[in-house]
Every structure is written in C-alpha cells, then in structure tokens.
Amino acid sequence: MKTAPNIARVLGLPIATGITMCVVWHVAVTSGGVPQYLLPAPTEVARKLITSLPELLGHAAISGLEAVASFLLATALGFAGAVALVYAPLLREIFYPSIVGFQLIPKVALAPLFIVWLGTDSVSRIAFATFLSFFPVLISTMTGLQNADPNAVRLSRSLTASEWQTFVSVRIPFSLPYFFSATKVAATLAVTGIVVAEFITANAGLGFLILSSTPRMETLTIFAAILMLCFVGLLLYGAVSLLERAGRRWFKGA
C-alpha cells in the first residue's frame, strides 16, 4: 500500500545493484593491482567455476546429498518430537527446559563431539547437521500445535470429535504454517552444519575443498567452491520454499 509494486523495479533494482557491485569489485581488483591470492576478479572466478565444474560438482553432490539427508531427518524428527512433546506432558516437562537451553547455547561447538562419537565418515556429519537443524522445527511445530485456534478446538470438541480427530483436522493444519517457516530455517542450517562438519573432518565435499585450499592460498578455488555452495544452499532453500507454497495453498484450500 505504501508504494506502487512495480515488478520491473522490484526485481530490476536489486539485480542492478548486485551487478554494479560485481563491476566495482572487478574494476577495483584489476586496476588496483590486488593480487589474485587475496581477491580474484569476478571474471576469473566465473572462468574457474566453468573449467573445474566437474570437480566442483563432485564435491557439491557429496555436500548436497548430506545436507538433504540431514534436512529430511531433522524435519521428520522435529515434527514427530513436537507431536510427542505436545501430547505427553511428562516428556515435555522433562525435556522442554533442556530444549530451550540448547537454543541459547552455541550448538556448532558440538561438532567435534559428533566426530568423536560417530567417527569421521558422513554419518557423523549428517548427525551433526540434523542436530543443528532439528531444534527450530521442533520448537516452531510445538508452538503451532499449542497455538491452534482455541475456538476451532472447542468447535471440534463440541462435535464430540476424538482427540485424534481434533489433532488431525484442527491442530495439524494450524501448525503447518509454523512448521513450514521453520523448515526454511532448517534448510539453511542443514547446509551450515554440513559445511562446519566438513571443516573439521572430511576428505571430500565443498567445505573440505574450501578449507584445504586455504593453506595453499588457492583463493580462486575457494571462491568457486563458495559460489557452488551458494547454489546448493539456494537450491535446497528454493525447493523447500516451493513445497511450502504448495503446502500453504493446500492448507488454505482444505
């Protein structure tokens, strides 16, 4: 209502800004004589991305698959956990303080612990990324299940619906928007978790590629790998957003 939502402007302006920044970066690097090992020009990065695409894709596939697995595990476990905690008061009272506590402490610090426990292969990385992205899903879904419109719940009760029927037809639909917005957070966190775990232990994957190129000062490789990782992250995020849109539409249509 504030301003005319002009599509060309809304899309064009940020893209133009992005391109301008790349041009400034390019000019600064090429004319300023910045050494390539500190900051390569964007064109160099693009060339590197194309020339070593097969290698990058190989690493991306590893990181990407692990991130997807973690994401799926985290959302499934988060949702199931939320249902369990909402319906079992004793469980909730035991675990809820720890869950809130976990939200306040920096969970990334636990990455080495997962490696100590589960070894250095992908199981530990997936477990860590799942752990990282599980909490937002759990907490949001719990909030959603508990915040179902009380009048809708009352209506359902007055129709002598069973607890299960109320759950399926009232609470779940009301919690879906909360669940879906948390899945988007989880998507970003899953990739973050995999990257951090790969920093610590891995012999493949984009995080490994980035960190192992650092001592060799292969900045070009680092930039290309980061770019690749952005693609992976955005792909996952985009897929989840599409699913969310479909879910919301279903929610509204139902």
Partner: peptide, 10 residues
C-alpha cells in the same frame, strides 16, 4: 539464505 560459515577460511 546462503551458508555464510563457508567463507570463514577467506
């Protein structure tokens, strides 16, 4: 939206 931790080595 992108995994920002990845740039730590930079």
């Amino acid at each position: 939206l992108i995994p920002k931790v990845a740039v730590a080595p930079l």
